[in-house]
Design a protein around this nucleic acid. Structure first.
Length: 305
DNA sequence: CGTATGCCCTGCGCGC
DNA sequence: TGCGCGCAGGGCATAC
């Protein structure tokens, strides 16, 4: 599940291998992964163009090639990486961008949820989510006041609000659970009920968790790899995500997994007390997690921010 | 507008 | 061992 830290890591690893290269040929093996425009136009526009830059907005990767903007989203299981033409073709390979140094930028996606938009100078056809994307949480413009305004007046759970890309860009299931644990806020709390102090703590925790995950080159939970095929190192530092049944690193209480906003949600019932009158559906812990060493947080919740 | 629901898709865990 | 079922989930369309 690539979220902001994973997408940023892909961006950084692709950058030196892609920027400056001419795109000689685009091979589309699965047309449905080309969202806009039609695959023939997509190919024709791109062939011969030169990659100038790669940027990231939220979970979107933005490749600029002169006036063209190639927008990629990996969704659940998309992989973008550079390899040589001799590398055996992956089972779920959908698009190959042939570069002028003989290398290939490949798009592999087991679940076929992700794919590409190509925008011209007028930027017509931009995916809605990108056009409506909220602030970058690691940029200076993301202040506690900005977060407070995004959450104010909302009845929905703070977890659902944080997953809403129009409110804050780049958070997904893993880092929402981690940020809420860090801030000692129960994920089912109605977003609009957070106090100013809680919002400030959450703001700091979002930045802290994401920045650390970028440092660790992302979380490899199941399939994620960066643009060079390497795993991320953040998994072992996760405090609650995928740790149902294990002791809370801060207090030792058993971490629970419940459903919030139709998402598997991990939290510590002691560090993150439930709001009044909220019934939570327990979700069985994922099997096969036994034997993992329990790491103690460098600082317990409460000393953050 | 805010909020909730279903869909896309594949692999895997589970129950039998 | 093998088979079928249901779940997982980001973003988007759709409904209310």
């Amino acid at each position: 599940m690539p979220e902001l830290p994973e997408v940023e890591t892909v961006r950084r690893t692709l950058y030196p291998r892609v920027v400056g290269r001419r795109l000689e040929r685009v091979e589309i093996l699965t047309e449905r992964q080309i969202f806009h425009p039609d695959p023939g136009t997509f190919r024709a526009e791109l062939e011969g163009a030169v990659f100038d830059d790669i940027e990231r907005r939220g979970k979107y990767l933005l490749f600029s090639l002169g006036p063209l903007l190639l927008v990629a989203h990996l969704r659940m299981s998309g992989h973008l990486f550079v390899c040589g033409p001799e590398a055996p073709r992956q089972k779920h390979l959908h698009v190959v961008f042939h570069l002028d140094d003989g290398q290939e930028l490949r798009y592999v996606d087991q679940r076929k949820f992700g794919g590409f938009h190509l925008l011209g100078p007028d930027r017509q056809g931009m995916p809605r989510g990108l056009a409506n994307l909220g602030p970058e949480p690691l940029s200076p413009s993301f202040t506690p006041d900005v977060l407070a305004a995004a959450l104010a007046g909302r009845q929905t759970s703070v977890k659902a609000a944080l997953l809403n890309q129009a409110l804050v860009a780049g958070l997904g299931n893993i880092y929402v659970d981690e940020a809420l644990f860090c801030a000692r806020i129960h994920p089912a709390r109605p977003a609009g009920t957070l106090t100013e102090e809680e919002v400030a703590r959450l703001h700091g925790c979002i930045r802290r968790v994401l920045a650390r995950a970028v440092e660790k080159r992302g979380t490899t939970f199941s399939l994620y790899r960066d643009g060079e095929g390497n795993e991320g190192d953040m998994y072992d530092e996760l405090q609650v995500f995928d740790r149902a049944g294990e002791p809370c690193p801060a207090c030792g209480t058993t971490i629970q997994k419940v459903a919030v906003a139709q998402r598997g949600t991990h939290f510590c019932p002691r560090c993150q007390p439930a709001p009044e009158g909220v019934a939570l559906t327990p979700v069985r812990a994922r099997p096969g997690r036994r034997g993992r060493s329990v790491r103690v947080a460098a600082e317990p919740p409460g000393t953050y921010e």
